[in-house]
Structure formats: structure tokens, C-alpha cells
Design a protein around this nucleic acid. Sequence first.
DNA 1: GCAAATATTGACCAAGAGGTCAGGATCAGG
DNA 2: CCTGATCCTGACCTCTTGGTCAATATTTGC
Lengths: 211, 211
Amino acid sequence: MSDESQARPTRIQQKNRATILEGALTVFSSQGFRGATIDQIAEEAGLSKPNVLYYFASKEEIYRNLLTGLLDMWLDPLRSINPEGDPLSEVHRYVATKLQMSRDYPRESRLFANEVLQGAPLLTEILGGLLREMVDEQAAVFQGWMDQGRLARVDPHHLIFSIWALTQHYADFEAQVRAVLGPGHDPYAEAGVFLDRLYSNLLTVHPDEQG
Amino acid sequence: MSDESQARPTRIQQKNRATILEGALTVFSSQGFRGATIDQIAEEAGLSKPNVLYYFASKEEIYRNLLTGLLDMWLDPLRSINPEGDPLSEVHRYVATKLQMSRDYPRESRLFANEVLQGAPLLTEILGGLLREMVDEQAAVFQGWMDQGRLARVDPHHLIFSIWALTQHYADFEAQVRAVLGPGHDPYAEAGVFLDRLYSNLLTVHPDEQG
DNA sequence: GCAAATATTGACCAAGAGGTCAGGATCAGG
DNA sequence: CCTGATCCTGACCTCTTGGTCAATATTTGC
């Protein structure tokens, strides 16, 4: 904040920028970008509004920082699929990891959901660039496994979409899921069982359809 | 607008209320409730702002009218599952119908997605009431089929969630789907094939697991 | 312990947004 | 073709909100 070039951040800077982003995550994820106000973020973070703007030049900069800062973490499970591993196990692990992330980081899920819902104004480059490459690469791994007869043949891209849709649904539509199920349910545990079954049945190779 | 009791609407009233709701659907579905402005709605509808407020008392009333007006249409496919029909065919028809609705009415899908994402402030009663009853009823039908050995055993509620998640994903996350797939794709057509396969494999009864 | 850098805030501003209202235009029915 | 009801609008009000700034407090490094 002081020097023209990148200055190393103070301890206070580090802490305050972090608490601001933390508060902003809560607010943006539940209100969307336009619905959120700097006052809400400031209150959530326990700082005054001008103080928030002392650390970030504008509301949009807070938002941008949040998005880009969380993107890597969010996409990490996709990267960690092991092409040398057992295909079915790798898919199951990916599904389980994504589901757990929805349970443990629902705000992050909703943040991205909000952004994409509104047409992803700030993410289009990334979606069509980095993400697309990662997905294509991963789809190629799946395709390879299918060609080797180790995974049933389905459209690999839509396989990935289905995993995203099914796992993030429990975070993004939590209000609906809880209202419909009522109390006394552990949606994520039940979903885990359901999804295991679903992907086993979808992807297990049946002897009569190899080749 | 004139009488204390319900007066029959004029032709002009009918037309203008309809165009306002139509414009509001576009705006609310792409901006969320808080992000939308009456000015945007007015412009979208080709009316002046005060004129919009002449037909609806407030922004929230427009929104409320939209939501409740579209809810029946949105939930209709669930109602039309035939308990006397062939289980697998009925599920496939439901999936196909929901997918087509996402393709044909993406704004409606996004409108509800936005609302639920923000915690469904205006829909909680309906979600926990009407919707919950409908889902429970439908889940009971599925359960019956499973008990008869005509459908593989899976959690019926999560089966329904999965259909919602997978079909609406293509409308709600359209920006992402298109960015990742790139041009030259018909996401809905591909999804149709994928989902047919997915639910066949999930729900077809295997001889060795009946009982 | 003392300057210089850093951090914080109250007061303020301009633009935006929801909503009102008086008055004028238009339309329907007799 | 006239009158009352309906429809429409420009001007305006108020509250919110993103953002600024000068002044003050606090911390840091010597």
C-alpha cells in the first residue's frame, strides 16, 4: 500500500486483508456481487467501511481477489486425479472429494455458482482458458481409460459436468434440500452413498459391451 | 387497480402486466433480486418506471408475482409422472422433460436458482410445504416400484435431487458449460444421451440383486 | 522515546435506486 | 361527443451505497 513496487505486506495488512476477504466471502456468497454492500462486508469483518477501502481500492477489487484467490483451491481436486491409478477408484475419490468440499466450503461453492449464474462476467476468460484446458486434459484421461476398456464409454465432458452438478447441488441448493428432506437427515452422507452407487453403475465395464 | 374488490383486468392491464413480468423475468434471472433495478425492468418492458409502478406496487411485488406465477409451470413435470406406467420409461420421460425445460426456459431455471442460492427467502414456506409434499409423494411412488423389484434400489429423494441437479445444471451454469465445451456443441442433445445412459444403468434391476 | 510510516475514522459527496404525486393524455361507455 | 375511469409521465423526494479525504491514532524502526 505504500510503495510503488510490490511491498511486502505488514502483519496488520495480512491479517486485515484476510478478515476482509473472509467477511466478503460470507456476504458475496449469500447476496451475489450486486446484492452485497461494502458496509455489510465491513461489519462482517469488524472494520469500518473506509478502513475496508483502505485495503482494497473498490468493491470489485475485493470480489476479484476473492474469486481468483479461491479458484485454485476449488479446482484442485480435478488436478489430483491420477492417470496411473485405478479408473473407478479415481472417479470415486474425485466425487467424494468434491462432495466433501461442498459440505466443508458451501460459501465458496455458492460464490462461484452466483458468478456463473450471472453469466460469469469476471470468469469468462478463465472458464474458456485455464478451466477448459484442465477439463479437456482430464476428459482425455477418461477417454484413454475408456479406450482401454477400463471404464464404460460415456461422454467424458458430460461425465465431469455431472460430477460438478451433483456434488455442488448440495451446497448451492442447500435451502431446498433441507426444506424438502426435513430434519433428521444428513444430506451429504446420504448423497455419498447415492453417488457411489450411481457412478459405479454408470462406469463399471460390462463384459458384453467391451471393444 | 380501481376497485376495492378484485376487478376484472382491462385488456391494457393484461398486456402490460404480462410484458412487465416478461421483462422482469429477464432482469431478475440474470441479476438476482437485489441486483435488478426497476429501471432495467421498465426498459426491458418498454415502459416508463412510474408506469411499471402503476401496475405493481413495488419491486418485491413484481418478483413475488413472477415466482409464484412460474412455480406451477416449473413443477408440472413432477406431477405428470404416471404411477401406473413403466417405471424406467417414466423416469426417462421425466428426465427428458426437465432437460427440455432447462433448454427452453433457462431464465426460469436461473430465477429459481438465484432465489434458492440466496436461501430462498420468499420460497421457504413453499419448499417446506407444497414442494416437500410433492416430493415425498413422488418418492413413495419410486419406493413402491423398488419394492416391487421394478426399479433398482436407491434413495428416492436423492434420485429426484439428482435429476434436478443434472438437468438444471445446463441452464444455470450455461456460461460454464459453453465456455468449457467451446463452439460446435449441442450441450442439451449430448446431455440427453448421457442422462439416458446414466439413469438406465442406475435404475435397471439386475437379476442378482432383487429381493 | 521519537520521527516516519502505517492504520483508522468521522464527515462528506455524488450517483443510483425505490417510490410518490399532481397533472395531463387516452380510452370506454352512454 | 362528452364524461368519468383508466393510463401515463416528468419532476421530485428520500434513503442507500460506492467512494473520498483530511485529520487523528497507532505502530515500526532506529
